[in-house]
Design a binder for these strands. Sequence first.
DNA 1: AAATATGTGTTGCAATGGCAACACATTATT
DNA 2: AATAATGTGTTGCCATTGCAACACATATTT
Lengths: 234, 234
Amino acid sequence: MDHGSLIKHHPLFERMNEEEIMKIFSCFSFHKKDYAKNEYILLEGDSVQLIGIILRGTVLMEKNDFYGNNYLFMELREKDIFAEPFMGLTIQPSAVNYKAVTNCSVLFFHYRDMWRPCTNNCLCHSVFTENLMNLLAMKSRNLLNKIEILSKKSLRDRIMTFLNILYRENQTASSGEGRKLQELPPNQLFVPYNHTELAEYLGVNRSALVRELKRMRDEHLIEQHKNIITINQQ
Amino acid sequence: MDHGSLIKHHPLFERMNEEEIMKIFSCFSFHKKDYAKNEYILLEGDSVQLIGIILRGTVLMEKNDFYGNNYLFMELREKDIFAEPFMGLTIQPSAVNYKAVTNCSVLFFHYRDMWRPCTNNCLCHSVFTENLMNLLAMKSRNLLNKIEILSKKSLRDRIMTFLNILYRENQTASSGEGRKLQELPPNQLFVPYNHTELAEYLGVNRSALVRELKRMRDEHLIEQHKNIITINQQ
DNA sequence: AAATATGTGTTGCAATGGCAACACATTATT
DNA sequence: AATAATGTGTTGCCATTGCAACACATATTT
């Protein structure tokens, strides 16, 4: 709700105090925009000059082919940035759509402003750049995770890889600064998708996914309770 | 062969003259290392502090699962950078292996040095940073391409998407500064893989790929001559 | 509260594509 | 030149999984 504090705690402004954030805001022409549910923020082919930061809501990175099939590439939530793969020296057309699936508030800034000599002479500029680069690296890791999943040929392997990645993320998250989230035993994983969404993310047929999950339950590999999957080690 | 000129023309040193490149070299502790064919440069789990620039040879980004299956994520060639998804504030273990598939020369630098205040007071520092970020964006786009391919359920769709991406890349490449490469008519695509490699990249079985390519030839969708695939529009 | 939309679980059917196995061609290595 | 290694093209088999269709449950909107 409170965008001010969300910005303050956004990874993009990490290791910057309020004063420095203010400075950065005067260096860059940030502007906020709201989007209604199901509105498109950016369409495939659009030229990209702005980087977006999600203050509120959920944005999908997706793409349609000419048969009308829809492919979900990534789900972006509060604090995520987007459109950054298409920035660069030459203005790149976006290869994907960004679509608001809930009502959204987005903060934009001009990528070009990053490289303009800073008139404010603020030292924090390089901290900001470093933060952005760290976010880019994180986004790349997320894309790699998706590739790892999609590389698996069998549905079960995809599920197991997905769970494995969830596990890995929980480990590093809880080792870092005290990220809340309901703390669960390490073999219990909170799945932030419903079945329909998960099937889409894993790139498989929904009914086939449900069928396979049932098989895995029958073989006592996993247990399912609502959004929590427990892995039974043997 | 001549590493000096390769460095000079590397996208990482774009818009920098020789003098500036020299300055950068004294800011950063670059060092060169050679690898033999089939040697591993970085293993899954290794902590990453260096970014690598390939001066010569080909490096695979790949991963093994515990059944011994091998998954090819990306092929990196001369001028590509690697290991950059795992850099950041917290030192990240690599999620993949980087393997030299030919004899390779690699130039490394410490990611941390990027953010140390520049003692040389060189203005080109920010140009260097910008160049690196552009490369990161490009790598992200490549990962997105791979995801787009792997998202397709049918083998034919994967092939068509792959060809489509090749087409797209040829378009933007030839519109830019005069990149040589043998100029081909737009519906003729040079495929930089053999069938075995292509199958691996598309995440499909090799014999199934060959079978499908044959079907597509029989239906006059495409023609194949060595590494050139011609798309027959109808 | 009614009506509509969205998600879940299940099943039969069909076909795509993985796998294994082979002969043959081409390329590297000695 | 001989040998080994790697890549190509082909085929039969059949498990996996996509698809369609359905009943039912749960959320959301009016």
